[in-house]
């Protein structure tokens, strides 16, 4: 076991039963995963497997069709009633079905009946079909008690994109200070001080007052990373951060990401860099056809893959 398991088991991002379709195309088909504080989770998978979509659902750049996203114990998406057994148990439908089931199968234990009835309600979508006000009220209360505004959450969830997405109309300095200043998290002086500090860290302090169009891809991506860091996030999401880079620039970006990992930043990385996954990840997920097919610590993941599709995938990428 790696040293990462020593870190507290506090959940940062929790994805429950996530479904996403674009029109008729089903991209995610029920993904569930829990990212704990200090973990470095690498998501691998063939293109079109839904890994980027899942990452983008985590900070709601894509709206999930179904399912829940939790951030530090707070709900970001509307309540999915079928994930909350207590909501189901409170419904009239459940009570009716339990009475009926009790009469029909008096010999079966109540626990088993409970599960059976819940399964039945879930399968036939009975809550939306039968329930009225009380069910809606239960969901509303649950949502209200746990809800967190997504704009506030995103401040604590840094995201790095494949195409950098630096603000083209602003200088590097303004790129780094815009959000902290606009969101009134820092004064202009504080934000600039922090920006200089971060720029020094990546050795680009001389670029503070140039526009992004004059930078190389590697420089852009490193600045995009520190732009997210300027918000002092609790978790960093990386969406194929090196895929749009020239090969010789990949190294500098990965180096910075490794630094971050060593400092204990919680990271979720969608990538095709197997070396990075092996070296840095505390857990590797393999996604295919919109579900997580396999999940393991890196050593076991690469040396002893179990899923058939994963074996095939690894044989192609690891030549």
């Amino acid at each position: 076991m790696t040293e990462n398991n020593v870190v507290a088991e506090k959940s940062i991002v929790k994805v429950s039963n996530l479904y996403k379709s674009f029109g008729k195309v089903k991209v995610l088909n029920g993904v569930t995963c829990d990212i704990k504080k200090g973990e470095k989770v690498v998501i691998l998978g063939p293109s079109g497997s839904g890994k980027s979509t899942m990452l983008r659902c985590m900070n709601l750049l894509e709206t999930p069709t179904y399912g829940e996203i939790w951030f530090q114990g707070k709900l970001l998406t509307p309540v999915d009633p079928y994930l909350h057994f207590d909501v189901i148990r409170e419904s009239l439908t459940y009570k009716h079905l339990m009475i009926k089931a009790n009469k029909e199968f008096p010999s079966v234990s109540p626990e088993e009946l409970d599960l059976k009835v819940i399964e039945d309600i879930k399968k036939n979508d009975l809550l939306t079909k039968r329930e009225g006000k009380s069910y809606k009220k239960a969901i509303k209360t649950l949502y209200k008690d746990n809800f967190m505004d997504v704009n506030v959450t995103r401040q604590k969830m840094g995201m790095v994109f494949q195409h950098f997405n630096l603000f083209n109309n602003l200088t590097v300095m303004d790129n780094l200070t815009l959000a902290p200043i606009k969101l009134k998290l820092k004064t202009k002086e504080e934000a600039e001080k922090k920006a200089i500090e971060l720029l020094k860290r990546i050795g680009l302090e001389d670029k503070a007052h140039v526009y992004p169009s004059t930078l190389s891809g590697g420089q852009k991506q490193r600045i995009a990373i520190i732009r997210a860091l300027a918000m002092e996030p609790d978790v960093m999401l990386f969406d194929e951060p090196t895929s749009a880079l020239d090969p010789e620039m990949v190294g500098e970006v990965l180096e910075l990401m490794k630094d971050l990992a060593n400092e204990g930043m919680t990271m979720v990385v969608v990538t095709h860099e197997m070396g990075f996954a092996k070296e840095v990840a505390s857990r590797v997920l393999f996604m295919d056809e919109g579900i997580i097919k396999e999940e393991n610590e890196p050593k076991e993941f690469f040396s002893n893959p179990k899923d058939k599709r994963l074996v095939e995938f690894l044989s192609k990428v690891l030549y």
Binding site: N59, L61, N151, V152, T153, R154, Q155, M157, G158, M159, F161, H163, F164, N165, L166, F167, N168, N169, L170, L178, A179, K182, L183, A224, R227, A228, M231
Partner: peptide, 30 residues
Amino acid sequence: IDKGQMEAGRSLGLTWKTTMFSIIIPQAIK
């Protein structure tokens, strides 16, 4: 204007309106 600009703004916690007026519109004017 590239969709990524709006996404980057939103991912930092800026609202649609702030991103629109600080990032998108200045680029669109050009």
